[in-house]
Design a protein around this nucleic acid. Structure first.
Length: 587
RNA sequence: GCGCCCGUAGCUCAGCUGGAUAGAGCGCCACCCUCCGGAGGUGGAGGCCAGAGGUUCGAAUCCUCUCGGGCGCGCCA
């Protein structure tokens, strides 16, 4: 409807240009807004205000000219000029009501658009290091990323969801060493666990499974493992935990040999990755691809990326290391890509990864990162620029942390103790639906207070419950209809004239907004718009429900009202679906 | 110290990218009700949009500064 009005105004503006009432040069996208106040009609356009200066005439006079030049339309009942020069459109009731049948006919596809024109978008999200289970911070990234991806798909983009698996690098080696030490404990060796090792319960589980499969085959005496290593960090602060753990990793590799080490390493990686995969899948988060960092090494992509930077003169050598001159592209300082010891840094992998993404031919690339990584954005963009790629194809969306509250108190334990709240625990406590909804209820850059008590509550205060309840209520009405031996029939549009009270009008308007909301939410990467919309829709429905009976004796009225609420049910179901939330028939 | 994000009703947050009288949900106050599906419904109070300048027809929204909160500033990932 908006786009149709846009077309009308564009036509009027070109007419004025042909008559020299407006300069030919102007180029403005015409904005049509929903009005807040019914007195201002259904839609408003501020084009006269925007063009007044260029046209060198008063906004209201220009508005009048535009209105006079406006082609006739069956949808428009009345056009008014108001305030400083707004053009207000009053739509015919029939054109508004047409949305009911449109929804019922389109079904699940209602709200989908083609604005994305099939352009290929890659969305990379979560990408947590496979060194332990996902925690609630990752959960927000998961819910947000998955919803943004689904929204883009609904808007007609071709979406590729991807998880970047950091299966290379030092942390993974520390994980492998930690696992091996727990395994040795399992074998009966007396081990002093390193202060910088992974101490979580899940390491014990992996070690136990390893012991079950391989018995004592990977066993080495404790003293051969631990003797002659540098000092670990002691209680008094002496020693160096980093130096110690690195030496321990080297010792593990030496003693186990390439093959044995790989067994331990893969056992830890695969076990944790399988856990993450299952966790996300249960959360309704599905990926097209799990992209291995290691594969970048194997494919030579890292060497290739570094080589390209070297050749183009963006790299220099200093203190035995290779630095990328990212300051040329606005970064705060230059960054190391190849360490003194010849190893590539994580940043080098990331350059190669983003190079690879663009080489794969995506029109847009979206990274969803935790807000703590924001300092990383300039250097990645700098690298893409240095490689001569189009930086504007990359969007980095930063997601702030969520703080859990229970009984008005912070419920999140510190990561220091190794005892953080996992995503799985959260899902078990509040359910997938509430978790998915609450996570995307806020704008991503907003710090979020996650109220666990509210998420669990079965009351109208809980927005998830409130929306799902509306859906279940409609299903219940239909069951009621069935019990009374009645059935519902699709109507011709003119019969919807029977829907003439204020509640019905409000519902119809809200329903017709849905496609606009989906489109806006998709383009702005703002799932919360859907959440707010659904609450509005549910609210309109509940108000209607309280004010009127649907199953009335008069058949035409009954069918019209049922058509309306069936449309409501469809839109609620579509909207919740986009958020990864279920639409129960009964609760 | 430098950089990024945030500051809107008592609380949690929207505000359609510069538009008309700044909105919603809890909480609070006052009435009504127990009806297809529940502790339900209707109305009301509550704001110098952190503060100060600036940009223009017009600012919660854009620019500068100040204050307050979060997060970053490794040859870690």
């Amino acid at each position: 409807m908006k786009t149709q009005l846009q077309a009308l105004i564009t036509q009027a503006v070109t007419t004025l240009q042909q008559r020299d009432d407006l300069p030919a040069e102007i180029h403005l996208d015409i904005q049509i807004e929903r009005t807040r106040d019914k007195n201002h009609g259904d839609f408003a356009c501020n084009v006269a205000l925007m063009l007044a200066k260029q046209a060198r005439c008063k906004p209201r006079d220009l508005a009048q000219k535009i209105v006079d030049a406006l082609p006739a339309s069956a949808m428009v009942n009345k056009v008014e000029i108001a305030g400083p020069g707004f053009i207000n459109f009053f739509m015919t009731e029939g054109s508004q009501r047409a949305v009911i049948n449109k929804i019922i006919e389109s079904g699940e596809a209602f709200g989908h658009s083609t604005i994305g024109q099939g352009k290929r978008v890659q969305v990379e999200f979560v990408s947590a290091n496979p060194t332990g289970p996902l925690h609630v911070g990752h959960g927000r990234g998961a819910a947000y990323g998955a919803t943004v991806a689904d929204l883009l798909a609904a808007a007609g983009f071709k979406v590729h969801r991807e998880y970047y698996v950091n299966d290379a690098g030092r942390q993974m080696n520390i994980l492998a060493a930690s696992t091996w030490l727990r395994y040795l404990e399992n074998c009966g060796e007396a081990i002093i666990f390193p202060s910088n090792g992974y101490k979580g319960q899940y390491i014990y589980d992996i070690a136990a499974a390893l012991h079950q499969t391989y018995g004592d085959a990977l066993r080495h005496a404790a003293n051969t493992v631990l003797d002659d290593l540098p000092e670990d960090e002691n209680a008094d602060g002496s020693g160096d935990k980093e130096l110690y753990i690195d030496a321990l990793v080297e010792r593990s590799k030496t003693l186990l040999g390439e093959e044995g080490y790989k067994i331990v390493f893969d056992a830890a990686l695969n076990s944790i990755l399988a856990d993450i995969r299952e966790d996300l899948q249960e959360f309704g988060v599905i990926y097209e691809e799990w992209f291995s960092e290691n594969s970048l090494v194997a494919s030579g992509a890292i060497d290739r990326a570094v080589g390209r930077l070297k050749v183009s003169g963006h790299l220099y050598e200093q203190n035995g290391a290779w630095w990328f001159r990212s300051t040329d592209f606005g970064d705060e300082k230059d960054r190391v890509v190849i360490r003194e010891n010849g190893q590539a840094t994580y940043f080098a992998s990331d350059i190669a990864y983003h190079m690879d993404k663009l080489e794969r031919g995506f029109d847009r690339v979206i990274d969803v990162w935790g807000a703590d990584h924001h300092g990383y954005v300039p250097r990645v963009k700098a690298a893409l620029q240095a490689l001569g790629d189009d930086v504007d194809k990359l969007d980095v969306l930063l997601v702030q942390f969520a703080i859990l509250y229970r009984g008005g108190e912070k419920a999140q334990m510190s990561t220091r103790s190794g005892e953080f709240v996992t995503l799985r625990q959260l899902r078990e406590e509040v359910g997938n639906d509430a978790a998915r909804f609450f996570y995307v209820m806020r704008k991503c850059e907003q710090h979020m207070d996650f109220d666990l008590d509210l998420a669990k509550s079965q009351s109208n205060d809980n927005p998830v419950f409130y929306i799902q309840y509306a859906h279940a209520r409609i299903c219940s009405v239909m069951r009621q209809l069935d019990e009374k031996g009645l059935s519902w029939q699709l109507l011709d549009e003119d019969k919807f004239a029977l829907l003439d009270n204020e509640h019905e009008q409000a519902l119809i308007t809200t329903l017709s907004r849905y496609p606009e909301v989906v489109e806006a939410a998709a383009l702005a990467h703002e799932p919360h718009q859907i959440a707010y919309y659904l609450r509005d829709l549910a609210n309109d429905f509940h108000t209607y429900y309280n004010a009127h009976q649907f199953i009335v004796d008069e058949e035409a009225v009954r069918n019209a009202r049922l058509a309306l609420i069936i449309a409501v049910r469809q839109v609620i179901s579509n909207g919740l679906g986009l958020l990864g939330v279920s639409s129960p028939d009964k609760m």
